[in-house]
């Protein structure tokens, strides 16, 4: 079953479209990678899906047509995004970031439980719960961004360039967390990345985006083996 169906999506900034009728699907319970070079339109897709950019075309999420939904409504429906630059609030404490991440959750008990759960999963955050999040290291901030997004109990977690600005070891750690979220909690993930090699090792399905169009798609393992794809699109 597809949790997300995107058909003929067009979006852009001002008069020019960056995306030209992009279509793809995300299957429930899978990790989907969206790959492509700088400027291919990966971030634009995520921004359009979250409703930060006006777009045309069909976007269906869990059976709901998202076109009528405000960005806030999309979060309530279970769509969460970790944007580039983490999406954390630098002058908030770690705990306040988690609290604001749960803005759409009404049950106080559930918020408390989730907080404890992610503090257990990320002990570094627990140690720094009263500190301003702007003072955390890059890796810690990415953990916080992840925990913040998870606080909204998303059905689909979209992540924009999680590896950006992180040391390779920490990037790998983040991807391991993605994998366990997917495996242990059945979380569906849509990951946008330039680091194709690593991402393809973790993803089930992948799409390659080139100049606003999806040019290659298929199981991640196929793309990983496909030399032509590697050379022409992924710059390996």
């Amino acid at each position: 079953m597809n949790i997300l169906t995107v058909r003929d999506l067009c979006a852009g900034y001002g008069a020019t479209d960056v995306l030209h009728k992009v279509s793809f699907t995300v299957e429930q319970g899978s990790i989907v990678a969206l790959l492509g070079a700088n400027g291919a339109g990966k971030t634009t897709i995520l921004r359009a899906l979250s409703g930060l950019l006006p777009s045309r075309g069909l976007v269906e999420f869990g059976g709901t047509d998202l076109r009528q939904c405000s960005p806030a409504r999309r979060v309530e429906l279970g769509l969460a995004q970790i944007p580039q630059g983490r999406g954390t609030f630098g002058d908030f404490t770690v705990e306040e970031n988690l609290a604001i991440g749960a803005y759409t959750i009404n049950s106080k008990r559930q918020i408390k439980e989730d907080m404890e759960r992610w503090y257990t999963a990320f002990p570094r955050l627990a140690e720094r719960r009263r500190q301003q999040s702007g003072n955390l290291s890059g890796g810690e901030q990415q953990m916080l961004a992840l925990a913040r997004a998870l606080m909204s109990r998303p059905k689909l977690l979209m992540c924009d360039e999680p590896s950006l600005g992180l040391a390779p070891a920490i990037t790998e750690q983040i991807f391991e967390i993605f994998k366990s979220l997917n495996h242990d909690h059945g979380m569906t993930l849509l990951v946008v990345e330039q680091n194709a090699d690593l991402t393809l090792q973790f993803a089930h399905t992948a799409y390659v985006l080139e100049a606003g169009d999806i040019t290659v798609s298929g199981p991640a393992s196929d793309l990983l083996r496909n030399e032509a794809v590697q050379q022409s699109y992924l710059g390996v």
Binding site: S50, T88, F89, F92, A99, I100, Y103, T104
Partner: peptide, 23 residues
């Protein structure tokens, strides 16, 4: 308060606030 936190968040960054579901 939740309201106060949301107001601070909106003041900090409207885009990030939209992404956590704040109107």
């Amino acid at each position: 308060t939740r309201l106060g936190l949301a107001m601070r968040a909106s003041a900090y960054s409207s885009e990030k606030s939209l992404l956590v579901g704040i109107r």
